[in-house]
């Protein structure tokens, strides 16, 4: 994404913050909607738009789980593995999905690049344990192992998102 596009997104909210630095997270999140992750060029563009160094921007981005500095799949499937979900079978769900997609224990991206499966820490849907979040906006549960597998099939068939909200 270019610095100009990022500026166009953040300029209307500049007045809401006493310091420009506050715009770095909104800028990073917005830049990520384009490809679903942040390339070094994106980091540079953000840095330019908010007048910080690219190294600083990268350091901020790397702090947060939901900003990706490496390419990830078209859809990111986060399986909550924290205590409430664990008690309800999240490990079984996670193992099943990883096995199904041919991934290692802690997840990864499927060979076709469509699905990234990752462990998540408590997603705040413990009442729906075990829960799964697709990208950042749809969280559902409870899932059985089979239902979780079906979810991946649905995602594979779904249209490519126009923007990625991770």
């Amino acid at each position: 994404m270019t610095a100009d596009e990022i500026r166009a997104h953040i300029d209307p909210m500049r007045h809401e913050f006493a310091e420009e630095r506050s715009l770095v997270l909104p800028a990073l999140k917005f830049a990520q909607t384009e490809k679903g992750y942040l390339s070094t060029e994106d980091l540079r563009a953000v840095a330019e738009a908010v007048h910080l160094t690219p190294a600083y921007v990268e350091s901020v981005a790397s702090f947060y789980d939901r900003l990706y500095l490496e390419p990830v799949g078209r859809r990111v499937v986060s399986v909550c593995v924290t205590l409430s979900c664990m008690l309800r079978g999240s490990d079984e769900v996670m193992e099943h999905l990883c096995h199904r997609e041919g991934l290692g224990h802690h997840g990864g991206t499927s060979e076709d690049g469509v699905i990234t499966v990752q462990e998540a820490q408590c997603l705040g849907y413990c009442d729906a344990a075990p829960c799964i979040q697709v990208d950042a906006d749809q969280t559902r549960g409870p899932f059985t192992v089979e239902q979780a597998g079906e979810l991946l099939d649905e995602l594979r068939d779904a249209p490519v998102p126009t923007r990625y909200v991770r």
Binding site: M13, R21, S22, L25, S59, Y64
Partner: peptide
């Protein structure tokens, strides 16, 4: 102003939250 975090439990700690809101590492 609604400000979205990006995945870090520690940002619930009030001063970490403020750091994050100021555009720093939380």
């Amino acid at each position: 102003t609604l400000y979205r975090g990006a995945g870090a439990y520690i940002c619930g700690e009030e001063t970490a939250l403020l750091e994050s809101l100021e555009g720093k590492r939380g």
